[in-house]
């Protein structure tokens, strides 16, 4: 290779890598730095020099920590329920997932985005929703006020349900793919050959294999629910907010003093997610 060719090659390399940095890295890093500067009073319309006031306000009011804890509760519950349901479906419908109507039908829910799922759950479970009408028709309730509050409730039942409904088909398809990729059918034959029963195989081989292989995806899904915005925006409760909703609200209140706090929340949440990601990925890599 000639010197000029080498130079051309490294020029192209440099060029391609800068596009990557510009499009993928700069938004996050630049945004983080700007958000940090704004929340520390170093940038923005109200900047008056360095101050920790906004961070103190955010942390002292407890709103951020409360929202973070609530988000973790929602995400954990949704992932736990969805993973159990998906495990059951994968193992119970092993054969019909491979071919036939079910192998097609299970993909259909993936065409429903979070916003639409929120709307759907609302229309189904609100006091005047479809479920309430059916139950009324059956004579189980006498008035729509008798129907329990399942959306906008403080336990986040509606939010969790919406996320579970989105996650179950996705996780079932994922687990099913793992089941086939890891040749679990063959392992089952080996296991039977060694004298183990069906339930022993499921408990000791199938479930651990699926869960450890899917662990990175489960983690990403957990983080995805943690930062979810559309669903809690539509059917979340008034008292308990998830982090994304809280952050956006700070920008929509038309109180200029709220904006640095909005930045502080966004920066804190971003750092939390990145920290969570890097710690758990390292752990997962070590065990995987």
């Amino acid at each position: 290779m000639t010197i000029s060719e080498l130079r051309l090659l490294s020029k192209r390399k440099l060029y391609l890598r800068s596009v990557f940095l510009l499009l993928a890295v700069l938004p996050v890093v630049g945004g983080l730095l700007y958000g940090l500067a704004y929340s520390l009073g170093l940038a923005g319309a109200l900047s008056s020099g360095f101050t920790l006031q906004h961070w103190q306000d955010v942390l002292a009011s407890g709103a951020f920590l409360h929202a973070l804890a609530y988000s973790v509760y929602i995400a954990l519950s949704a992932i736990l329920v969805a993973t159990s349901a998906a495990l059951f479906l994968t193992l119970y419908f092993k054969k019909s997932l491979r071919q036939g109507a079910m192998s097609y039908l299970l993909y259909l829910p993936l065409t429903i985005p979070a916003l639409v799922m929120g709307f759907l759950v609302f229309q189904l479970l609100t006091k005047s929703g479809l479920a309430s009408r059916v139950v009324f028709g059956l004579g189980w309730i006498a008035d729509l006020q008798d129907f329990p509050s399942l959306v906008h409730d403080s336990w986040g039942f509606g939010i969790i349900l919406a996320h579970v409904l989105m996650a179950v088909p996705f996780l079932t398809l994922l687990f099913h793919a793992i089941y086939r990729e890891q040749n679990l059918d063959q392992l089952q034959q080996v296991s039977e050959n060694l004298g183990a029963g069906q339930s022993h195989f499921v408990r000791r081989i199938a479930i651990p294999t699926i869960l450890t292989t899917a662990a990175p995806n489960l983690l990403l899904y957990f983080i995805f629910v943690l930062g979810s915005y559309e669903v809690p925006l539509l059917i979340g409760s008034q008292q308990h907010q998830m982090v994304s909703v809280l952050a956006v609200q700070k920008f929509h209140r038309f109180n200029l003093l709220d904006i640095p706090q909005g930045y502080a929340i966004s920066v804190a949440f971003t750092l939390f997610v990145l920290l969570l990601l890097s710690i758990s990925l390292k752990k997962l890599q070590r065990h995987g």
Partner: peptide
């Protein structure tokens, strides 16, 4: 290391990302 960088915008809540870059 490059790939880890690519995961960042991917895992961040899109709306939080939007907050951080809106100034631009």
């Amino acid at each position: 290391r490059w790939l880890l960088l690519a995961y960042w915008p991917f895992v961040l809540s899109p709306v939080v990302l939007a907050i951080l870059v809106q100034r631009f």
